[in-house]
Amino acid sequence: MMGVNRRDFLRIAGLTAAIGMGGKTAFDLLWPGQLDAAEGGVEGWWKSKTPENPLFPGDMAPGNEVPNPAELTAKRWGMALDMRKFTAATRAAVVKACNQVHNVPAIPGNQNIKWIWETSFEHAFPDLAQEYMDNEVHDLPFLVLCNHCDNPPCVRVCPTKATFRRADGIVMMDMHRCIGCRFCMAACPFGSRSFNFADPRKFFPDGKEPNPTYPTRTKGVVEKCTFCTERLAKGELPACVEVSGGAMLFGDMADSGSPVRQALRTRYAIRRKNELGTAPQVYYLI
């Protein structure tokens, strides 16, 4: 897509249609223009990006990697949730902040979208739950989100590199490349990914997204928590961390002085499904 001009693209499309992955050219005939929106359009959009365009944070657009001096950077981003500091109000504020900042719609039923949500200990840590555990921990709702694994199975299975791991460890989604095969959702052992079964814009109250500066998604693509890359680029902490009142820590795992590393030195921490070897970078301080 990127670096492939339209003529090349159509040539490849024609060739591949001829060798049996058809459908593409048929679609082009049936819905002219849609192809541009779905394919070539992305390139155009990137080119039209200006530094003022809030839809594209500086780190994402090729050719626009002008470093923002305020940008927060790390060798390896990680997060710790201090379970002793969470209250019902904090949890609600965290989930609400994330949903609002990222225009996560409230879709009724089981085709919903979740970036960060509350669940019980048994569901967050099915392999650690036992009958006689500490009541306090057992009854404590846990917030779960994408673990931004060091060894992410979702990235391994994606057939188009639409989900990828950035140099700073954040597992990202390219919503314009995703073909909606949902292989990543089968691969994620944490249920952290959501698919846009329908147009998410239909589910915003009054039909308007809560945050006009963050892009809404289209139907047919997968999405998930991004550790707020768009906020890091502006020098801000992730939205959840900001409203958590110190219950959520965020920092560079490669920096022994970072708040996460400091907390992990003195507190007992657990990770979800450690045994699967995906190396989650979200730690729960018990």
Partner: peptide, 15 residues
Amino acid sequence: LGRPMRLMNVLLHPT
């Protein structure tokens, strides 16, 4: 596929 029009991405970005 959620976005069938992007099917060719499998060939454009062979993984």
